[in-house]
């Protein structure tokens, strides 16, 4: 029955592509947070009337973030090829997709993190300062814990954006479900493969959103 409806779908390949997508998502999300969170904290701290108010640095960081965010991801994918080969040795497959994914998502996550940190009541910072905390202690013990629901929401948005980016990376041989959709669904005109990949991506996005929402609720104490 299923074979009649989906004649071109080869399930082991779908399975492998799904695993690749998850690997790309997991790997790129990890590095995006690793780079994006400190960048977001720095953007926040150097921002106007914040703890390390520093106009030139804030403007520079802002500019870099804005430039990276205004480059369409498809262009970024192509522009990044030489750099990606330098970093991970290949620009192909799941591994080759991770550097452009990280570069594409880090500025987004940094901005969202900055906004989440700004949502923290200034009084909390003042109270922690009044306890004699260092800036580092304020960030680690007050800002990040207080911004946790906002940061989790930012992480959810970023993860979902990364899912669509992983699909796009299929265009330049990035592997995963997007790659499958491009090669079978588009180039060979096999709509059944296209449908299955799209449904799987949809399920993934739904899953990420509901897990994210649940975590936000779990850590909101307001």
């Amino acid at each position: 029955m299923l074979e009649k409806l989906l004649p071109n779908v080869f399930w082991p390949e779908i399975w492998q592509a799904s695993l690749d997508t998850l690997a790309m998502l997991g790997g790129s999300l990890l590095f995006t947070v690793l780079f994006g969170l400190p960048l977001g904290v720095l953007l926040f701290l150097t921002g106007p009337r914040q703890l390390f108010d520093h106009k030139p640095l804030y403007r520079l960081l802002s500019l870099v973030v804005n430039v990276l965010r205004s480059v369409p991801f498809v262009i970024l994918l192509i522009l990044m090829i030489p750099l990606t080969e330098l970093i991970v040795g290949t620009s192909l497959g799941a591994i080759g997709a991770i550097p452009p994914l990280v570069v594409g998502a880090t500025p987004l996550f940094a901005r969202l993190a900055e906004t989440a940190l700004r949502e923290v009541d200034r009084g909390i910072i003042e109270a922690t300062q009044a306890m004699g905390a260092t800036t580092r202690q304020i960030v680690l013990n007050a800002l990040l814990p207080e911004a946790r629901p906002g940061l989790l929401a930012a992480l959810t948005v970023t993860a979902i954006t990364l899912v669509s980016y992983t699909a796009m990376s299929g265009l330049i041989g990035g592997g995963g479900l997007g790659d499958l959709a491009v090669r079978y669904g588009y180039q060979r005109y096999q709509p059944d493969v296209m449908a299955v990949t799209v449904i799987l991506l949809l399920v993934l996005v739904q899953l990420l959103q509901s897990v994210g929402d649940r975590l936000v609720v779990r850590f909101s104490r307001k």
């Binding site: 009541d121 009084g123 909390i124 003042e126 109270a127 009044a130 007050a142 814990p145 207080e146 946790r148 850590f219 104490r221 307001k222």
Partner: peptide
């Protein structure tokens, strides 16, 4: 020097 505030400024996450 201890300090208390009008809006308490307690950490909601703790």
């Amino acid at each position: 020097i201890g300090m208390i505030f009008q809006h308490f400024n307690l950490l909601a996450s703790k």
